[in-house]
């Protein structure tokens, strides 16, 4: 009897020893794989081979690691790209800022002379004002950019009526449209409600509307409508501008993107990006349809209900 117990005890000890050895081996291989992956990532390898076809815990970890690695890498690339663009733009802006300031100095010097007629004075003053406007615009753009960089777009969407938003933005765009003799049509059901942050959404819609005004020839027409789809309230801004080629639909929402043929226009290429960012943060989206030469329609989709 005691012999049996002895043998059973021995067998059990052997078994547990084997189990311990096996477990250690498991852990070592596991750690090795993990280290391999981390090493590859630290080395910044483009292609890392993982065992994602195996039914192992390690494989899951590898898949997740790779996912994160790719995402981080992409983000890094993106920010690198952004930074480069930003640098050029800042030097660009610096140049652009220099010109109005120089101009203003000149006008100021001229204004200090005594021999100017009132008309001349007024003319110089008007010139200066133009320069100030230009500075103002540049400053505005810079502020927006910094806001974007610091990420202070903090939307607080609430369920509210759409009509005040529409009216506000149309009013803002009114003067510049009038300047270009562009007709503005607003068609909005007063009952329409959606979930949005008024201040930021106004900026987004305003940006799109400003773009429309900017790229529509004098005497054109801009139609702003609002209606409701299955899930969204849709604000459409249609213009009779130059239109956007199909292949650029996704491009135009990218940061600092500017169409080749509109480079001479003022702007930094962040208006649409900002608009999309704002809308997206409210769980909406923007899409665009256009025919070159005929005009474009930008649609802003805002969640129709909470």
């Amino acid at each position: 009897m005691s012999n049996y117990l002895f043998y059973i005890g021995c067998a059990m000890i052997l078994c547990s020893l084997a189990a311990a050895v096996l477990l250690r081996w498991y852990l070592v291989t596991y750690t090795k794989r993990l280290l391999y992956c981390l090493d590859e990532m630290l080395a910044g390898k483009e292609y890392i081979e993982i065992e994602d076809e195996k039914e192992l815990l390690m494989a899951k970890v590898e898949v997740k690691l790779l996912q994160m690695y790719k995402l981080l890498k992409q983000q890094k690339q993106q920010s690198q790209k952004d930074k480069e663009i930003l640098e050029t733009i800042i030097s660009d802006i610096s140049h652009q800022v220099k010109t109005p300031i120089t101009n203003m100095r000149i006008y100021q010097g001229l204004l200090q002379r005594d021999d100017l007629s009132l008309d001349q004075c007024l003319e110089f003053m008007r010139q200066m004002e133009d320069q100030v406007d230009r500075l103002d615009y540049l400053m505005e753009a810079m502020i927006e950019m910094s806001r974007m960089e610091t990420g202070i777009i903090q939307v607080k969407p609430v369920y509210q009526s759409l009509i005040p938003l529409m009216e506000e933005t149309v009013c803002q765009a009114g003067p510049s449209a009038e300047e270009k003799q562009i007709q503005l049509h607003l068609d909005c059901d007063p009952q329409l409600k959606a979930v949005f942050d008024k201040k930021w959404t106004a900026e987004a819609v305003g940006n799109i509307l400003n773009n429309a005004v900017k790229y529509t020839r004098d005497g054109g027409k801009i139609v702003i409508t609002a209606d409701i789809t299955d899930f969204f309230v849709r604000i459409r801004v249609g213009d009779t501008g130059k239109g956007i080629p199909e292949e650029h639909y996704t491009e135009i929402f990218k940061r600092f993107y500017r169409e080749e043929d509109v480079q001479r226009e003022e702007g930094l290429g962040i208006g649409l990006f900002l608009a999309q960012e704002i809308v997206r943060r409210q769980k909406g989206y923007i899409d665009v349809k256009s025919q070159v030469g005929q005009g474009s329609v930008f649609s802003i989709y805002l969640p129709a209900e909470v």
């Binding site: 498991y26 291989t29 192992l56 899951k60």
Partner: peptide
């Protein structure tokens, strides 16, 4: 090797 824990 450590098997995947996907029995649930």
């Amino acid at each position: 090797m450590l098997r995947n824990n996907n029995k649930v």
